[in-house]
């Protein structure tokens, strides 16, 4: 089902929705970020993509999991109690298809038959994903090579097509339909609009020109790539900061810390990064990834070899290109994947 909205009407009626917490792309300084729609925030849908991925909306960078008391007089002393949290209905408006796809990749880790992360799943289930297709993918985009596309519907509840003055919205799920009922002023789309959208989609797909060799890489043996003598050279420029992992919509690693103030404490889960030496530091003092090349190798092996081997469903990357754009030393996953595939 397709619906057509004048852009202005669509944006104005977002402000009137009270029963969802709404996230929109908004410009702040030089960059766009997903921000809760509140007074003073103007949605800007003429963006390429947000600087940070929307992963923190479902998976906050720092999350209080439990609280505890260290006061022996307290009947609950030393017992972990789940921290109180709210899980409001929420909607991400204008999420790019690569980022929606990324949530499906991350879902394999947080919501699977063996493990269900209670907080990730509750937030995910309460979120409606209203995508915005990419009319103009960039040179750094390679979604089509990793199972997605500039108008991919993976992980979306509805997808918007930017037709200039209007948004054409294709409703994909009941969740999407329920949310869109709250937007005023829409009308049924006409055949010409749908044709226009199809044309935009085809043109956008054709714009993605990348030579990343995923298929060839998937066929290589894990040890063959792991032991190859390419890693020292590849890793030289890397400064081992957390930009790539923290901007990545599919990196999911975390660290758990207890923070105590006087006799009360919190158990907190923070994002962590395989680029940091402390990530693998053992209590004994031994560090299996003490050298930089081992950490760099881990990041690319995990995304492009271990994940595919474990889940048999493509790579742990949705092709958004954030790591390529923001890396201070130009570590380019496309080039590295190609080096790995040519071993």
């Amino acid at each position: 089902m397709y619906k057509l909205f004048k852009k202005e009407d669509f944006i104005n009626s977002l402000y009137k929705i009270k029963d969802y917490k709404i996230f929109v792309p908004a410009k702040e300084g030089y960059y766009h970020f997903f921000s809760p729609l509140e007074k003073g925030i103007s949605p800007d849908f003429s963006f390429f993509n947000t600087r940070l991925s929307p992963k923190s909306i479902i998976y906050p960078q720092s999350e209080r999991m439990f609280e505890f008391s260290l006061n022996k007089e307290d009947p609950d002393a030393f017992i972990l109690k789940e921290a109180e949290k709210e899980f409001p209905l929420q909607a991400i408006i204008g999420i790019r298809p690569c980022d929606a796809h990324a949530f499906q990749i991350v879902k394999k880790n947080f919501d699977n038959p063996d493990y269900k992360d209670p907080w990730w799943t509750k937030r995910y289930e309460n979120t409606t994903f209203i995508g915005l297709g990419c009319n103009n993918p960039r040179n750094t985009c390679f979604c089509t090579k990793v199972g997605g596309g500039p108008f991919s519907e993976i992980g979306l509840d509805a997808i918007m097509y930017d037709l200039g003055e209007n948004f054409l919205i294709k409703v994909l799920t009941d969740k999407g339909s329920l949310f869109l009922k709250k937007i005023e002023g829409g009308k049924e789309a006409e055949e010409t609009h749908i044709k226009q959208a199809e044309k935009i989609k085809k043109e956008a797909e054709a714009k993605i020109k990348t030579d990343i060799e995923i298929e060839a890489l998937l066929k290589k043996g894990i040890l063959q790539v792991f032991e190859a003598d390419i890693w020292e050279e590849i890793s030289f420029p890397c400064i081992n900061c957390g930009i790539c992992t923290y901007l990545c919509p599919t990196c999911w690693c975390f660290d758990i810390q207890d923070e105590v103030y006087k006799d009360k404490g919190d158990r907190i889960r923070n994002w962590d990064s395989c680029m940091f030496p402390i990530f693998t530091l053992h209590a004994s003092g031994h560090n299996p990834r003490a050298e930089k090349f081992r950490r760099v190798r881990q990041r690319f092996m995990h995304k492009l070899k271990y994940y595919p081997e474990k889940y048999h469903d493509g790579v742990q990357c949705s092709g958004c290109g954030r790591c390529i754009i923001a890396c201070p030393t130009n570590m380019d996953i496309r080039e590295i994947a190609n080096k790995m595939s040519k071993i």
Binding site: L52, Q61, I239, N240, C241, G242, I243, T245, Y246, S273, F276, P277, I278, P328
Partner: peptide
């Protein structure tokens, strides 16, 4: 700030074997 430590890691002054945040 997302505490990615890029500012620290790109800085030639920040060569401590273990940074105080680590």
């Amino acid at each position: 700030c997302i505490r990615c430590y890029a500012c620290r890691n790109v800085c030639p002054l920040c060569y401590c074997p273990t940074c105080f945040v680590d």
